[in-house]
């Protein structure tokens, strides 16, 4: 791979449109996060829970901009969404995430009397293990195992599913058409 191509791939990442005022910006979710662009569909508390959970599932997800990625996709019509959830027969994507995030915070509170973000890493892992196995009491969101699966897959999308993610695994990206533009 030539230096030019390598740097091209690094910069292209996953480019999505974000609106700031009247301006439309073409940014990766990581850049949108670094610029602290406002979220539109997730509030600050949901975004904090999502980042904590996603980071614990797939290290690197926070910095890769998981909240901005999900938030941007939730602003779209389902047919334009890039989220994996569109395969999984869930009708209302926004409710799925928000209810799941609320539920996991409730779990953290009832098990450890702390917010998800304040848990020790062993506690987070225990909670995630229970979530994955669907062994959560008083859970009122989407099925716990499905919620785990979807957020983990989303986090993997932003961490591994881009040219930068392939590079992290040292897999050649070899695009026919590089994902450098919104579709």
């Amino acid at each position: 791979m030539t230096t030019t191509r390598r740097s091209f791939i690094k910069s292209s990442g996953l480019a999505l449109s974000y609106t700031l005022g009247a301006q439309t910006l073409l940014l990766s979710p990581a850049a949108a996060r670094a610029k602290k662009l406002p979220l539109r569909r997730l509030d600050a508390a949901h975004a904090a829970s999502l980042e904590t959970l996603a980071e614990a599932l797939v290290p690197g997800a926070r910095e890769a901009g998981i909240s901005h990625y999900i938030d941007s996709q939730l602003q779209r019509e389902p047919e334009d969404s890039l989220l994996m959830i569109r395969y999984l027969g869930v009708a209302d994507h926004h409710t799925f995430y928000v209810d799941g995030l609320k539920s996991i915070e409730r779990q953290a509170k009832s098990r450890y009397r702390k917010s998800l973000a304040a848990l020790k890493s062993q506690q987070t892992d225990e909670l995630i293990g229970a979530l994955a196995a669907g062994e959560v009491e008083n859970w009122s969101g989407p099925p716990a195992g499905l919620f785990y699966f979807v957020v983990r897959a989303d986090a993997a999308d932003v961490v591994y599913g881009t040219p930068a993610g392939f590079e992290r695994l040292d897999i050649p990206y070899m695009p026919h058409i590089a994902p450098s533009r919104p579709w």
């Binding site: 890039l82 058409i177 590089a178 994902p179």
Partner: peptide, 8 residues
């Protein structure tokens, strides 16, 4: 576009 995200 060659991407498992855009593929969706």
């Amino acid at each position: 576009v060659s991407s498992q995200l855009w593929a969706r």
